[in-house]
Nucleic acid binder design. Structure first.
Lengths: 217, 217
DNA sequence: TGGTCCGTCAACCTTTTGATTGATCCGCCC
DNA sequence: GGGCGGATCAATCAAAAGGTTGACGGACCA
């Protein structure tokens, strides 16, 4: 088979250039196209398909300055017919990011501080239909299944994230299209699992344990 | 003069590869060395100098996963004899980051989402002894000096830090040996200065602006 | 098919927080 | 020595958050 065709999605030109250089150093990869955000990625994918060009793997960042974020884009790509595997390549290894990506249908999760060889291997794995997880990420997922009683559910993590942005219960309820009562119920569960009794402590602890990413970091 | 000799400092191999590719695309730059953190940068600089090799500009990231951070490294470099200009190239444009970098002696501050041409120009400016600021950064510095009234007092920052650990007003009062009423008064002032109306938003914003350091990082 | 977990919602009550107003004391600067 | 800003405290009221109990439907699994 020929070189694997990659779609690069990252809002930083520097990072795209780096990935391009890193992947095309050998002959087993070629960059089919680049995109600066999720919308552009979907457009590029449609364009390439219209031209009959193959895309074997999408390399996707999660944080995009503007436009559609990586999780939304990943979910959208997975809705397509015969979708290419999406390999997440991002800076953060928090539960919230990882869970959201996996839930959206990502077939791998790598960190940007990984050595080039590891990234290349991950791309190969993804293209072959296997999953590719950074060691840190794998460890985190393992620890979750081994101690499910203290683990937060995806929904709870999602609430925690909104909590950390400073929203009130009512605002969270509106944002998630649920009632304020439900928000309170979730919070009580979260407090119980984290061993705290108010929202600020919950955020502090969640940031410490890398469950959520605090704004700005 | 020959090609400008650059020292790249960034903890992400991907980003280093990108900068290398982006800068050496034309013949006016060459990469003298790379380093993954501040300590390594200082070592590389010493090594190059011992070899009699020139370094015209240091391209420095601020956030390093491990090792010496960019601000500390910048300050250390500026302590050397005839130090090379240090151009900061980072992801975040928060007040605290920028002020710290400028204070440490950086001669420029660019953002990673800048187009390649802008980054190349900034490196040229830095090498020529001029300062190079991203438009966003320049605007922020201007707004900062024009509105000093929004600055928090040391006492208020102290409260904010306790707030971020999840303490209640009563607990903060006990910790600081003041009454709960006083705590509330301080909080009202803090909310007013930050433009928020509850404690979680205050923490979120303070973390964003790097006024306080969030636990765990 | 029965159990368990998750996510949803409601009612009720207590505690905490936020908003407002007003006050005293102290150090600093012109 | 008068003005100013920072830090302290108080009282009151309204709003938000937290605690408790109970309930229902769906998904998943043994």
């Amino acid at each position: 088979m020929g070189a694997l065709r990659i779609l690069l999605v990252d809002d930083h030109p520097v990072v795209r250039a780096g990935l391009r250089a890193m992947l095309t150093e050998f002959d087993d990869f070629s960059v089919a196209a680049e995109a600066a955000d999720g919308d552009a990625a979907l457009r590029e994918l449609a364009r390439l398909r219209a031209l009959g060009e193959r895309v074997d793997v999408v390399l996707m960042d999660l944080q995009m300055g503007a436009g559609m974020d990586g999780v939304t884009a990943t979910a959208a790509i997975r809705q397509l017919d015969a979708p290419p595997p999406v390999l997440i390549l991002t800076t953060y290894d928090t539960q919230a990011d990882i869970l959201a990506a996996v839930e959206a249908g990502a077939s791998g999760y790598m960190l940007k501080d990984a050595p080039p060889e590891q990234i290349r291997q991950a791309v190969l794995s993804a293209a072959a239909g296997r999953t590719a997880l950074a060691p840190k990420v794998a460890a985190l997922l393992m620890s979750r299944i081994s101690s499910p009683e203290t683990a937060l559910t995806p929904r709870e993590v999602q609430l925690l994230e909104l909590l950390a942005t400073g929203l009130t219960n009512r605002a969270i309820a509106r944002q998630l299209f649920i009632s304020e009562a439900t928000v309170k119920t979730h919070l009580v569960h979260i407090y119980g699992k984290l061993g705290v009794d108010n929202r600020t402590s919950a955020i502090a602890l969640a940031a410490q344990r890398r469950i959520i990413r605090t704004p700005g970091t």
